[in-house]
């Protein structure tokens, strides 16, 4: 036999269940559209991200043949001048350069990797310029694991040679400096070459600085900056982007 307490509980269930059901249905009616909207927005954002990633990878891939083309021209110059010993060393450096490969799918790479990659190019240029070229590179140790969009340093260095140092008579100075300030990584590439009449920041192929700007914007939006200043004493390019570290690498280090 059902007790009074049991009966009361059942009656309470009978009374409260419809109220709860109505609330549930009301909630569904009010929030279903909003939940759908949020879901669609989320999907839209993911699609946009995928598109940006695709654009970014495309830009990354565009710049590599451009860099190779310039390096090959350097080697060709050495061959034309019959500087065989330098040519051999240049080819050795070039083979090292080719041996080194970026992971194509990585949107950001450690700074140390970028420096190492650029170093091969600088080795080739050192052979060409000989003692005339003085390179000064500063990179604080903690920054070597910071992440950077690939080919940034390399493109700036390459531009310094192409638009400034190539035409420089006498000592060619290249100053590369990385530093950290307010959680932003700064890169300064300064040379004592002459820009001449070139006013555009983009190079002949439409890549170079323009490519860097686009990639920085795709990845960091307005938080990344690129400034170029050129005068009679040389050209200085300054790039800044937010400090990002690879979590996996950090964990491995810990």
């Amino acid at each position: 036999m059902l007790s009074y307490e049991g009966f009361t509980l059942i009656i309470m269930l009978f009374i409260l269940a419809p109220i709860m059901g109505a609330i549930a249905l009301l909630f569904l009616f009010i929030f279903e559209k909003r939940i759908d909207l949020l879901e669609n927005k989320n999907k839209e954002i993911r699609l946009e991200q995928a598109l940006q990633e695709a654009q970014y990878n495309k830009l990354n891939q565009q710049i590599q043949p451009h860099f190779l083309f310039n390096t090959l021209n350097v080697i060709l110059g050495l061959a034309r001048l019959n500087r065989t010993a330098e040519l051999i060393r240049a080819l050795e450096a070039f083979s090292q350069f080719l041996k080194f490969k970026y992971k194509a799918s990585e949107p950001l790479i450690p700074l140390s990797q970028e420096i190492q990659y650029t170093q091969h190019y600088l080795d080739i240029q050192t052979l060409r310029f000989g003692d005339r070229l003085k390179i000064d590179m500063e990179c604080p140790e903690p920054l070597s694991t910071a992440l950077v969009p690939p080919f940034i340093l390399q493109t700036l260095v390459e531009n310094s040679f192409k638009h400034g140092l190539e035409k420089k008579v006498g000592e060619a100075l290249l100053h590369i400096r990385f530093y950290l300030e307010s959680q932003m990584v700064y890169l300064e590439v300064a040379d004592n070459g002459l820009m001449g009449n070139e006013s555009s920041v983009t190079d002949d192929g439409g890549h170079g600085l323009d490519n860097i700007q686009k990639r920085l914007y795709l990845y960091f939006n307005d938080r990344a900056q690129l400034h170029i200043a050129s005068n009679e004493s040389g050209t200085k390019v300054e790039v800044s982007w937010p400090l990002v570290f690879d979590r996996k690498m950090e964990e491995a280090e810990e």
Partner: peptide, 16 residues
């Protein structure tokens, strides 16, 4: 599923 869950309240309420 939710229709089943909400439907249950009607027979219960009519019984009461």
């Amino acid at each position: 599923s939710l229709s089943g869950l909400i439907w249950i309240i009607f027979p219960l309420s009519f019984s009461s």
